[in-house]
Amino acid sequence: MTALAGTTPPRIEARGVTVRFGGLVALDSVDLAVPPGSVVGLVGPNGAGKSTLFAVLSGLLRPSSGAVLMDGRDVTSVSAQARARRGLARTFQHPELFPGLTVREHVVLAYRLRHARRRVWTDLVTAGGFRRAGAEEDRRVDGILAALRLTPHVHLPVSGLPLGTGRLLEIARALAVDPDVLLLDEPSSGLDSRETDELASTLTGLVAEHGVSLLLVEHDVELVLGMSDVVHVLDFGVKISEGTPSEVRADPAVRAAYLGAEHDEAEKDVDKDEDEERASA
């Protein structure tokens, strides 16, 4: 399957993706597209199917039916490694880092995997160490570290990093391969409110400046609504809503299921208190 002439296909797209685990339907005919230079949000409660969809899009899980496309080309049967070479990168809910490497070495290794694969052999196998390779590598690696506010930690081993800093490092490592599309799995987990705001600003800046597309899965719904151009909402493997943040926020089904349930109960409690106060006046 390819895009129609004269149109720009999505960086990555799910078409009618269904995933079954025995009798359990984890995803049911889900469609989702991430256009070039956009931020797309994916929200839903635990068990909604978000992680399953991420696994399908990144090539870690083959769907029972449906298709995955990158830039209009069917990659449903393409491996995760091959999708990475085509410009896909992702992070995980729990940072996957190497305890023996420093912060900077993580980003250097990722950069060389994309731009100087022969150096990876020298670095890791022949005891050559992470010697500086050139000005362009330094510029790119140092720029990424600065953008994620990791410069003060560059020489620290990752084994002692706080969770939030480790999560920022995983994002930095993903960006070092110069992806066309980046799948972010709970990127704000472990960050405080200031760090979350800084992360949102950094990611939206990367989209604007470098054209990378983002697919963002987050429990912090306000972060998703504040960053995304389009938001998709899953419930028990079924997509129940899709639209702009304002459209999704106003959707009664979404408000009842995810955004408004606790808020509506709080409002009811306030109204009840006010009624009791008026009655006793």
Rank of each mutant, 00 (worst) to 15 (best):
V108F: 13
F130L: 08
A135V: 14
A135Q: 14
D142P: 11
G100A: 14
T122I: 04
R132V: 12
A89H: 02
P99G: 05
W121M: 11
A146S: 11
L145I: 00
G143C: 07
L145D: 06
A89K: 00
Q93L: 02
A127V: 00
D71F: 03
W121A: 13
T102V: 13
V141P: 04
S79D: 06
A110P: 12
A127Y: 07
H106N: 06
E136P: 09
A133E: 14
R114W: 02
G129A: 08
D71S: 13
Q93H: 03
R112N: 13
H115W: 05
D123W: 01
T102R: 15
M70D: 06
V75T: 09
E137M: 03
R119C: 07
A116P: 01
A116Q: 08
L101Y: 04
L124Y: 08
E137I: 07
R73T: 11
L88K: 05
V120H: 04
D142S: 10
P95Y: 07
F98E: 07
G129Y: 02
E96L: 15
R86S: 05
L113T: 13
A146L: 01
R112S: 13
R85E: 06
V78W: 03
E136H: 11
R140Q: 07
G100Y: 05
P95C: 11
R86G: 10
H115A: 12
V125Y: 00
G134A: 11
Y111P: 12
W121G: 05
G100D: 12
A116V: 00
V108E: 15
Q93S: 07
F130V: 09
H115I: 00
R104W: 10
S79I: 02
L109I: 02
L145Q: 03
L88R: 04
L124S: 11
V75L: 13
E96D: 12
L97P: 05
R117K: 09
R119M: 12
T76C: 04
E136V: 11
V78S: 07
L97K: 11
G128M: 03
S79A: 08
G87K: 02
A133R: 06
S79M: 03
R73Y: 05
L97C: 14
S77C: 10
A133P: 10
R117H: 13
R140Y: 14
A84L: 14
G72A: 01
M70P: 03
A127D: 06
L145S: 01
V75P: 02
A110L: 08
R140E: 09
G143Q: 09
A133F: 06
R132W: 06
T126K: 00
R140W: 06
R83N: 06
H106W: 04
G134V: 03
V125R: 01
L88I: 08
R73K: 15
P99V: 10
G134K: 08
L124A: 07
R83K: 08
L97E: 08
Q81N: 13
T76Q: 11
L101W: 01
V120Q: 09
A146E: 09
V141S: 07
R112V: 08
